[in-house]
């Protein structure tokens, strides 16, 4: 009996001792965890914004043969904001602004008239090949401009008017037009560059022409050669702007052939900004070549211009034609 009681006391003591030991360990463990450590498991959530801001990209190694799939995240928020917000503002301001300027100019200055009237004699200004190249480039430009502006402005402007299905169909065809007509446009720009480079090198005649406002604001008629300073500006906008949109456009048409994601973003930024500025400049060119100046359209329409028109607007060029013996003839059939 005594041994049984002793056994019971031993068992009770062991049990109590074990529990005491376990309690001691449990109390000690949190103390260990609360000591300063170099690892803070919540740190990554606090610094997520910093991570997004400071890292250019998140990428790693992949076993997929296309190594580009290793790019997990390429920050495109700035680029997205550019083409959703900034570009629309830039495009809207330059294009609508130019339209407003032209309307105000027409309403205040009116058409630039042929002050000495028609002479009845004409001189060849542009031959058939020059006019063919010009019109091929111009018509392609119109389609490229409309289809390109659809990419930027189409969704907010057209969907409320024509609905999603019609917009989708229209945009698909517009995209085909944009891609396929890019090549004849490029050929036209190259030919324009080659055909008219000789007559579009700036010289001192242009300085005088600009000083006298090109005769746009008064009734002055500053002398000009084959192309005046204003036309030279349009020429170089077409050649340099056309070259820029062509090069960036082909980069976009062949994605990732020569550029990565950043390169594609830069190409899109350059392409879109140059394009909207190009559209604004061409609105001014179309204005002055059509309703803005009496007798101007004939230069590209029939190829012949009235001698009095040539005297008023390109007097130095007319003298060169007279010296070469290729000047006036009675107004007759087009130069084709």
């Amino acid at each position: 009996m005594a041994s049984l009681g002793r056994l019971f006391r031993l068992a009770l003591g062991a049990t109590l001792g074990t529990w005491a030991l376990l309690l001691l360990v449990a109390l000690a463990a949190p103390v260990q965890a609360q000591q300063p450590s170099s690892v803070n498991p919540t740190a990554s959530s606090v610094k997520e914004q910093q991570l997004l801001q400071e890292l250019n990209r998140i990428q790693g190694r992949v076993s997929i043969p296309d190594k580009r799939s290793g790019m997990l995240e390429q920050p495109g928020r700035d680029w997205r904001n550019f083409h959703e917000v900034t570009l629309r503002w830039i495009g809207g301001i330059v294009i609508l602004g130019m339209l407003a300027v032209l309307v105000i100019f027409y309403l205040t200055r009116g058409q630039v008239r042929l002050e000495s009237g028609r002479s009845g004699r004409t001189v060849v200004r542009f031959n058939a090949f020059e006019r063919l190249v010009h019109w091929m480039t111009a018509t392609c430009f119109i389609v490229l401009a409309i289809s390109g502006l659809n990419i930027t402005f189409g969704r907010p402007l057209l969907i409320p008017l024509i609905g999603l299905e019609a917009f989708s169909d229209w945009s698909q065809w517009a995209k085909y037009g944009h891609n396929y007509l890019s090549f004849p446009f490029t050929i036209g720009v190259i030919l324009i560059f080659l055909m008219w480079i000789a007559g579009n090198i700036p010289d001192k005649t242009d300085v005088e022409w600009i000083k006298r406002g090109g005769g746009l604001l008064g009734h002055d008629h500053p002398p000009a050669k084959h192309f005046n300073a204003g036309q030279k500006m349009i020429y170089w906008i077409v050649v340099l702007g056309g070259g820029a949109v062509a090069i960036t456009g082909y980069l976009l048409m062949f994605p990732f052939y020569t550029a990565g994601i950043e390169g594609m973003q830069v190409a899109q930024v350059v392409h879109s900004i140059v394009a909207v500025l190009f559209v604004a400049a061409m609105l001014a060119h179309i204005y002055i070549g059509s309703i803005g100046m009496e007798g101007a359209f004939e230069a590209m329409g029939t190829g012949n211009v009235d001698v009095n028109w040539a005297k008023e607007h390109h007097s130095l060029w007319l003298e060169q034609q007279k010296a070469a013996g290729t000047d006036a003839r009675p107004a007759a059939a087009p130069a084709e």
Partner: peptide, 11 residues
């Protein structure tokens, strides 16, 4: 006009 129409065909 001929030059214009031919330019469209060419394009």
């Amino acid at each position: 006009m001929k030059a214009f129409l031919l330019s469209l065909v060419t394009a």
